[in-house]
Simulated scan of single mutants.
Amino acid sequence: MRFHRATAALMVCAGAALATATMPASASAATPPTTGNRVAVIDCTGNAQHQPGTFMLACGDGNNVLTSLRWSQWHSRSAVAEGTDMVNDCQPYCAAGHFHGYPVRVRLDTPQARTGHDGQRHFTRVTLTYPAGRPADTPRVVTLNLWS
Rank of each mutant, 00 (worst) to 15 (best):
P32I: 01
Q112M: 13
C90K: 08
S26T: 03
H4W: 15
T127Q: 04
S28W: 09
L108C: 01
P32F: 00
P32R: 01
V104G: 07
P103E: 06
L128Q: 14
Q73E: 14
T143F: 01
R70S: 04
L10D: 15
R121S: 08
H75M: 00
G101E: 11
P131F: 08
G15P: 09
Y102A: 11
Q91E: 13
Q91W: 09
R125G: 07
A29V: 13
R105M: 12
V41E: 04
A79N: 09
A16I: 03
R70G: 03
T34K: 00
R38E: 02
R114F: 11
L69Y: 01
R114I: 07
N37L: 09
V87R: 09
A21W: 14
T124K: 15
P32C: 04
A21I: 09
T34W: 08
H50Y: 06
V104W: 01
V141H: 10
Q49F: 10
S76W: 10
H4Q: 11
S78K: 03
V87D: 07
D85A: 11
T110G: 14
R121F: 02
T45W: 05
V106I: 01
F123A: 01
P103V: 10
M86C: 09
R134L: 02
R105F: 05
A14Y: 13
C44N: 11
V126W: 06
L146N: 04
P111G: 13
Q120E: 04
S76P: 07
Q51W: 14
T129Q: 02
S28H: 05
G53M: 06
A40P: 11
D43N: 00
N145M: 06
L18G: 13
S68H: 03
A16L: 09
A48E: 07
T124A: 15
I42S: 04
N64M: 13
A29Q: 04
G133P: 03
A58I: 07
P135S: 00
A40S: 11
T35W: 13
A58Q: 13
M56F: 15
T115I: 11
N63A: 10
N64S: 13
Y130W: 03
L146T: 06
H75N: 02
A30M: 12
N88P: 01
R121E: 10
V39A: 01
R70H: 06
N47H: 01
A29F: 02
W147F: 01
R77S: 08
Q49Y: 00
T110K: 08
F123V: 05
T124Y: 00
Q120V: 01
Y93G: 12
M1Y: 10
H122F: 03
T110F: 13
V12F: 14
L18C: 05
T84I: 11
T127K: 05
W71P: 11
R134W: 08
C59P: 15
W71G: 04
S78V: 09
V80E: 09
R107Q: 04
N47S: 03
D85Y: 04
R38I: 08
P131M: 03
A40I: 00
C59K: 07
A95S: 13
T110E: 14
G101D: 08
V106Y: 01
P92K: 06
S148F: 12
M86W: 15
I42M: 08
A8T: 09
G83P: 05
V104C: 03
M56T: 15
L57N: 06
A136H: 11
Q51E: 00
P131H: 05
S68Q: 14
T54A: 15
P33R: 07
A14R: 03
S76C: 14
T7W: 15
P33L: 04
W71V: 05
F55D: 07
D85V: 12
M11C: 01
Q49I: 00
